[in-house]
């Protein structure tokens, strides 16, 4: 095992898949000569050259669409969005082309494409660069959405996403890129649609994805230390497909749930999970489902305030104590 950064884990996944499959090609702004805006693709252009690692102009609609078109021809493009917030200018290509073409062609076409990049707030870059669009994308049948919370998961999930034959929206986090974790030398894959218990507990279930998993874990530690509450933390890892079994398992075990979700509360991922629990596990609940999301307003710039707009351990603890 080696202790490496989240970005390095992603880099290894990309490198290994480029080596493995001649149809894998990286496309995006600054991914080649600049080594990636967040250095996820560092060294890959030097190693694999212009053919496999392609710098593009600032034209998200065209280069995302180009990747989709190339995927129809059998390539496996991995498209980097410098920020997932920029998906707004490529939204038609993602939703209507990657998302609908299989269905509209009656199954004749598929798009084995990965679109990846950071999708998070908390870096004081203002509302246009701080979107958390997992719910925008997961709302489209035809798309898959993945959001890893640590480097180990990120590597295994990205390798699976690249081999998947459907379009996968892979959402990373700039605040996690420098986080280190143990990653084995030998190859491994993590399936999409398989959640992971990051902490076992018996009193309450904290269900989260992406960086919110870290918030939930921190809250769980404090709940144990200061309030004698034993929280279970379930990391969804992928939003669509969703590991419904794991969600129902933990709800049936603890009977109390707090959802921690950096996306906005209105029509957010947590709203969907909450509905699912109500539909499938209503009788298991001893208290209403609570949610901790980003505060429902555009992302504020102010460095003194933005971190408070995102889910915090304190807000999680507060919600847990309301129902425990």
């Amino acid at each position: 095992m080696a202790l490496i950064e989240y970005r390095e884990a992603l880099n290894q996944a990309l490198s290994e898949e480029i080596e493995r499959d001649p149809n894998v090609v990286l496309i995006g702004e600054e991914v080649a000569q600049y080594n990636g805006a967040y250095k996820v693709t560092r060294g890959l252009w030097k190693k694999y050259g212009d053919r496999r690692v392609v710098d593009t102009p600032i034209s998200e609609a065209a280069f995302v669409g180009m990747g989709i078109g190339a995927s129809m021809m059998g390539l496996r493009p991995v498209i980097e969005l410098m920020f997932w917030s920029f998906a707004t200018v490529a939204y038609d290509q993602i939703v209507n082309n990657a998302g609908q073409i299989r269905f509209m062609s009656g199954g004749l076409i598929n798009c084995p494409i990965v679109i990846r990049g950071p999708a998070n707030g908390g870096t004081n870059v203002g509302a246009t660069h701080s979107h958390t669009p997992e719910n925008w994308m997961a709302a489209i049948p035809g798309l898959k959405v993945v959001s890893p919370s640590n480097g180990y998961d990120a590597k295994g999930l990205l390798k699976t996403a690249i081999r998947d034959n459907d379009p996968v929206m892979f959402m990373e986090n700039t605040l996690l890129y420098g986080e280190k974790c143990e990653v084995p030398q030998e190859e491994y894959l993590i399936p999409l649609g398989k959640a992971d218990f990051k902490r076992r507990g018996k009193d309450v279930s904290l269900i989260a994805h992406g960086r919110s998993v870290l918030i939930a874990r921190k809250a769980a530690e404090l709940l144990a230390a200061e309030h004698d509450i034993d929280a279970e933390v379930l990391d969804l890892r992928s939003i669509r497909p969703l590991d419904e079994e794991a969600i129902l398992e933990t709800v049936s075990k603890t009977h109390r749930v707090v959802l921690v979700d950096e996306s906005k509360p209105f029509c957010g991922v947590s709203a969907q999970i909450s509905t699912l629990i109500m539909e499938k596990a209503f009788d298991e609940l001893d208290a209403p489902v609570r949610r901790v999301c980003s505060l429902d307003a555009p992302a504020i710039y102010s460095p003194g305030v933005e971190h408070l707009q995102l889910p915090t351990p304190d807000r999680v603890i507060q919600k847990v104590r309301e129902i425990c």
Partner: peptide, 19 residues
């Protein structure tokens, strides 16, 4: 195809050529 959104197919054409 066969694309319903005006000009939506133009980046796809680019992608076919890329392929």
């Amino acid at each position: 195809g066969g694309h319903g959104i005006v000009a939506g197919q133009t980046p796809l054409g680019l992608g076919l050529a890329f392929g």
